[in-house]
Design a binder for these strands. Structure first.
Lengths: 249, 249
DNA sequence: CAAATAGTGTCTGTTAGACATTATGGG
DNA sequence: CCCATAATGTCTAACAGACACTATTTG
């Protein structure tokens, strides 16, 4: 697995920008911060979770122009004193009340004219939310916030359909060579539940024996000893993700 | 291959930003573009090429504070009326005089305080330059611009070492499942030259027979019929990349 | 004992990697 | 004919995918 739990940590710390066009200035004091017109910068966060055995994302309904009444990916301005990741976490907190989730920077969209109000550059993050912790807040959703299946999306504001397309592809790609899937599950889970994560994201059925063989031989799972009993059938072993074996996937 | 030649084309066109915090405004006319303080946005471009059988990148020497005298990745402000990609292309053009190269958005760094002058958010792109076309301009390099081996870098301004680390990892990863390597070669090339690209980027030797078998069975190469004769030995077949077979890699 | 889901192994085709010799051109 | 590099095939181990039956629990 390439990413840390908070995927951008290792990179966004103290990385500095080059400022080639400023080079004619020879002293800090000569630099005029108001010399150039500046774009607005926002952060949008694609929040995904497994709900009702489906891969769903959180959208908000726009209450004003432009695209009034349409659904959109939640986002907001980056404050002058907060990092991009902090802004994304704030957005997450505001919309879902959840903290400490998998968060990864996806892509930055910055075409002029993309927002009719002013020049807006948006950095898109995506977050994966553990289905169990999310249940708590599920009921508190306001009327203009909703979870939607990524496979049955409503018409979206701006070009958000493309962003989601991109997100889903990224998620699918990383599923194979990272441990990203565990972020969608509670701490303990059964192999069947893990298989379901893969099936829902890839949108196709997998062979149970091959799946279990593949996962178990990597040694990435740890048997908790506990079992999950539900319904009238044989109980399933509960496993937990073993971060120490992360490199094996 | 996931990326197009200009990798961001399919995504950066007409994608729009959400602006959750603006929702209290109900009419366009009420929106005050000067309401919030805004960060500066720059684009940095990591330009890579194969030179002297080495993977090299272009750096510029800083002439002013901060990090005066240190080497840095070239970059500059994004103009209000140009897209991020256009800004990156402009940067490329200014530094190398080359157009129509592989260009891909990498990551956006935006921590506050990363630039002591003001809040600067930088979108980092990386470009791969065909070694042959580059030769033309090689001599015109000014004293404060230089090509450096990614394996022997000078001390870098800001946290540019981390950016390059990230870039190199991305390049290595994509080498396996995309046709990115062809962007470092002229239109026609021998199998040995292609192998060398892989060897230099992975920084280890590859087995000639296995490499050729793997590449040729994908059908991604087209025999031009021509041969490359140089030195006192058997001439090598010249191939060309067949974009129609791109999906096979 | 019926219903429901958990749990398990074999065979086969494909792929990755180790490895050595012959071919063809120029001087 | 010498030198230098191009070009080629086989064997083996690991992995991916197809495929069917037994185990354990509740009611």
């Amino acid at each position: 697995m390439e990413e840390q739990r908070i995927a951008t940590d290792s990179l966004s710390e103290s990385v500095e920008a080059t400022t080639g066009t400023m080079e004619q200035e020879s002293e800090a004091i000569h630099y005029d911060v108001n010399k150039y017109e500046r774009p607005s910068v926002t952060v949008d966060v694609v929040m995904m979770s497994l709900r009702q055995r489906d891969l769903q994302i959180l959208l908000i309904k726009r209450r004003s122009w432009p695209y009034e009444g349409m659904w959109a990916i939640p986002g907001g301005f980056v404050n002058m004193d907060e990092s991009l990741e902090t802004a994304a976490k704030r957005e997450l907190q505001e919309e879902t009340g959840v903290q400490d989730v998998y968060l990864e920077q996806l892509y930055t969209f910055g075409d002029p004219g993309r927002d009719p109000r002013t020049r807006v550059i948006t950095v898109v993050y995506f977050a994966l939310l553990d289905s169990e912790r999310l249940q708590v807040r599920a009921a508190s959703d306001a009327a203009d916030v909703g979870w939607f299946s990524v496979y049955e999306l409503p018409p979206l504001a701006f070009d958000h359909a493309k962003i989601l397309d991109y997100t889903l592809n990224r998620l699918r790609g990383k599923l194979e060579y990272t441990t990203i899937a565990f972020n969608l599950l509670p701490e303990q889970f059964t192999l069947r539940e893990l298989q379901r994560v893969y099936e829902i994201i890839h949108h196709r059925r997998l062979d149970k024996r091959n799946f279990r063989k593949k996962i178990l031989t990597t040694g990435i799972l740890e048997d908790t000893g506990a079992k999950k009993m539900e319904g009238t059938h044989r109980p399933a072993r509960l496993y937990r993700f073993n971060p120490a074996a992360e490199h094996k996937l």
